[in-house]
């Protein structure tokens, strides 16, 4: 049975296993996924960011002018940097440094966070109201 499975070349077995409609489906699905990804990537840039510590609103930062802020989290201060309408957090002490590794975020609705520090930053657009909606787990 193993010989029958692997005796043919991979290309030939792919060719045999799929009909025209299969290949068309694969192609169309790939294009649709690229399209959906593109619409997510081309989200309008936000112009303000909401900084929360332990789900408490600390500050609403404008992304229009470059600045530095410090937030005192559970693991010491966290630096929040704004530059070129982008925002990032830089942790000094965190187990996995996920917030620092997330890097710059700019799109409407994008999130960068250091959960061990308790600091969560969410980018908001102009037209959205400033209320932060928490999910059921956070509540």
């Amino acid at each position: 049975m193993a010989r029958r499975l692997f005796s043919k070349s991979l290309y030939y077995s792919l060719h045999e296993a799929t009909s025209y409609l299969d290949r068309l489906t694969i192609l169309l699905c790939f294009m649709a996924i690229i399209g959906i990804t593109a619409t997510f990537m081309l989200q309008p840039h936000g112009n303000q960011a909401v900084v929360t510590l332990d789900n408490n609103l600390i500050n609403t930062i404008s992304l229009e002018k470059d600045a530095h802020y410090y937030v005192n989290g559970h693991l010491g201060p966290v630096r929040v940097e704004v530059k070129n309408q982008q925002i990032r957090i830089v942790e000094y002490d965190s187990p996995r440094m996920i917030g620092t590794r997330t890097g710059w975020v700019q799109h409407n609705g994008a999130i960068t966070a250091c959960l061990p520090c308790g600091v969560v930053i969410r980018v908001l657009g102009n037209q959205e109201d400033n209320s932060v909606n928490y999910d059921s787990i956070a509540r």
Binding site: T18, Y20, D22, T25
Partner: peptide, 13 residues
């Protein structure tokens, strides 16, 4: 496989 019908790959996808 019939060329214009779906085989296992298309249905699976």
């Amino acid at each position: 496989l019939n060329k214009w019908l779906l085989g296992p790959v298309g249905v699976s996808l």
